[in-house]
Design a protein around this nucleic acid. Structure first.
Lengths: 225, 225
DNA sequence: CTGTATTGATAGTAATACTATTATATTAGT
DNA sequence: ACTAATATAATAGTATTACTATCAATACAG
């Protein structure tokens, strides 16, 4: 993947940032540093002041890139969903059978993300870890409608739409493709979080990743006539 | 239900509060007022100072009941899951067939909550609305392990366990009952949130509540052999 | 009517979430 | 090489948040 993606980057809606963090060294340090720090101390305790110290810059400089830490979270999650869409599209290339395409799509959406490093300054495994724990905070707040209207969540919606279409290819009469896909995506994240923190809410098997398996079965049984 | 529940109240783990809000008029005003206010302005913008003003008390007095607004959120969600368990248990009374029991359980877990008012000072419809939008913040943070160990999430886990058992009665070989139940509970909340704010992620039909229907089908297809 | 507990009133602190100003360093164009 | 534009650093400052502390007023229980 490295070779192919090296000149592509997930597109993030420009209204999220004041200045594109991909456009400068400081910008990239902000992204690298915030992923690192949010993973370590959590989004609530994360502040621009602490980040500034960690990346040897200043609060005021960070504010020139992002209006608030909420916008930074929006950026990180939008980047993640953009990246996921690339991964999905590439992993589906040359697969013709809709059923195989769906199997592969569910796999990509639910599997544990390991270090990828297609992008030098982004640790995808850590990014995945914070997306699991923090990404829902990006839309679970009162500014969601305004931000949705501005197109902030387009990447996520496109991903859901893409997989929904595969489902409809397999069963054009299935009535809830979007519900099913968003249930799988959100569900897989929660199950991973539960496995780590609230294991009574899940069924973990030591050494095995049952999450993709569970959702594969769930989806195919739901859509088969 | 009113007559039966009138002398029962959901039990909330005492370590969540400093002083039981059910034990005084001020305590109940804190709960009533916070449900109202969190629903209106969201958990992030909600502060004890604003709440104090709204219920004509003082910040310091509220702090005598709850250490922080996070603990108050824990209290509210724990109360909600305790209440849900009562609703579930009562609604399953006298139903013998495991399949019918499961159908009813899914219905209770996924349906829209309407005004109930078994408890004078709690508006259950509003409570449901804030649980949908805010409850995941109760465990999506770095204190989750500590709080889980203290038993804060017992009510939620008991509910999942209860429904998982019904699934195993129907199909003792089904491997993922807890994953399935937590997927349904979390999923139903998200779908309701999406229906209101991010409709592209769901399949809403005007005038119809498709969420229970979708999850009924999903569950029974998943567990049937 | 006295001790105890509850709430209210007020004040104060450290941290957070910003905004503003000015200085310095870098780079780009001519 | 000089100028202008731009980016960042350094510093300071404000309003709000998330508390803690103190003390007075009230209630109520024995």
């Amino acid at each position: 993947m490295k070779e192919i993606l090296v000149h592509m980057r997930p597109e993030v809606n420009a209204c999220i940032y004041l200045k594109d963090p991909e456009s400068s060294d400081l910008g990239r340090r902000i992204i690298t540093g915030s992923i690192e720090m949010i993973d370590e101390i959590g989004f609530e305790r994360f502040t621009f002041r602490k980040l500034a110290k960690a990346i040897r810059s200043t609060e005021a400089s960070i504010y020139r890139y992002f209006e608030s830490k909420h916008k930074l979270l929006l950026y990180i999650t939008a980047w993640y969903w953009g990246w996921m869409e690339y991964r999905l599209v590439f992993s589906l290339a040359n697969i013709d059978s809709p059923r195989k395409r769906l199997t592969q799509a569910i796999e990509v959406l639910t599997e544990q993300v390991t270090e990828d490093r297609s992008f030098r300054h982004i640790n995808e495994a850590k990014l995945n870890h914070i997306v699991i724990a923090e990404s829902s905070k990006a839309y679970l707040n009162k500014s969601v409608d305004q931000e949705n209207q501005a197109g902030v969540f387009t990447g996520y919606k496109k991903l859901v739409e893409r997989v929904s279409k595969i489902i409809l290819e397999i069963n054009p009469k299935y009535q809830y493709p979007h519900m099913l896909v968003s249930t799988v995506i959100e569900g897989a994240q929660y199950q991973r979080y539960f496995a780590e923190h609230l294991p009574k809410l899940t069924d973990v098997v030591k050494g095995k990743d049952v999450i993709p398996r569970f959702y594969q079965e769930l989806v195919f049984r739901s859509i088969d006539t």
